[in-house]
Design a protein around this nucleic acid. Sequence first.
DNA 1: ACGGGGACATACTCAAGAGTATGTTCGGGC
DNA 2: GCCCGAACATACTCTTGAGTATGTCCCCGT
Lengths: 209, 209
Amino acid sequence: MAATAFSDVASIDRREEVLAAAAECFMRRGYEATSMDDVAEALGATKGRVYHHFRSKPELFFEVYRRAMAILVNGAAAAEEGGGSAAERLERVSRIHVLSMMETQTFQRSLTLGADLYRFGNAGVHKAVLEELMDIRRSYEDVFRRLFAEGNADGSLGPLDPSLAMRTVLGALNWVAIWYSPQPGETRAHRERLAEDIATQVLGGYLAG
Amino acid sequence: MAATAFSDVASIDRREEVLAAAAECFMRRGYEATSMDDVAEALGATKGRVYHHFRSKPELFFEVYRRAMAILVNGAAAAEEGGGSAAERLERVSRIHVLSMMETQTFQRSLTLGADLYRFGNAGVHKAVLEELMDIRRSYEDVFRRLFAEGNADGSLGPLDPSLAMRTVLGALNWVAIWYSPQPGETRAHRERLAEDIATQVLGGYLAG
DNA sequence: ACGGGGACATACTCAAGAGTATGTTCGGGC
DNA sequence: GCCCGAACATACTCTTGAGTATGTCCCCGT
């Protein structure tokens, strides 16, 4: 049983490798431009391995997307636990968000690709799954919307339209995944510092003044 | 001669139609997923027409990109002419930027696609052209960088890192092209009002204060 | 009125890529 | 020691799509 469990873990790791390679490829070439052979080549393997773990290209992509969203949702939940004013919680959530953009960049990039895919997804990709993915996205965005509304109520944030504020703030934060490129010799402390700077600057205009 | 000139104008318009259709397709499906047949179908024509005006798919895309950048560059130049403090000019440039994101959304979306293409552009697409396009982009970003630096000097903007500020602000502004969807019955006045709101909110955190 | 070229349409070629069908290997349970 | 299934690799099929080659229409100058 222990051996079986160990084997399962190893198996999961192998699947994880495929997922990570796929995220890398999707980030570099986009969804359509990425071939299953590309993913396999990034693994030093062949298509057989990829198709062994994932039924199809859309399913592979959806898993990458789900993983990316899970990272964000878990991060936000952890950041909200500490309590404090809406502004304080918003600041923590934003910092973790930026940190995720930097440290799991390849996965996070797939979020934009997924949104594009949904916007006018042609046939082939299952509408239902995309709908589900967009729901996850929306509920995550609601975290920000709610925090802005709360800040409006508790006075820690200035008067504003929560939806518009959410969009501009998330825009600035998400953009990090686009321009950020990890520097050689960079430590986690560097990234945390950068994330703090960015969050502070971005939220500066929304604080109660 | 007048007839010839008139004919040229008509000819240019026909080319322009292809360009606009291509921008629409690139926005909806992305670069790779867009086929030349898609563009033709959007025109109610065939590939023959597309290839008559543009040598290849990359060249077609590059033209869309160049057009998008030209709109931004011209807008920024016009917005800067009025003079005033760095903060005032920055506010005007930002407003026009957002307005362009909304009103020429299909073209503006290609900018992100182009950047992605450059990041790890595989063979086929000419590296030299992409390099040129990125130079245009960089010089446009320099407008913002310079305005932040000026604002730092003239005291109209708070102390900040111009490069980081440029990235966060442009992130928030560019994101508009991603979520914005024109509403039926929407007028230009609505968009100008929205652009003003967005620019004001985004820049709020950077003003001297 | 006619010859030529611009502005397309039609009909191909050829390669790439998604998905499949069928080996092959190798470790663990009996 | 044998067998079986997980975890791949190999070798196909079949469609899609970029690019090309060629035909057609029509307007414009001479």
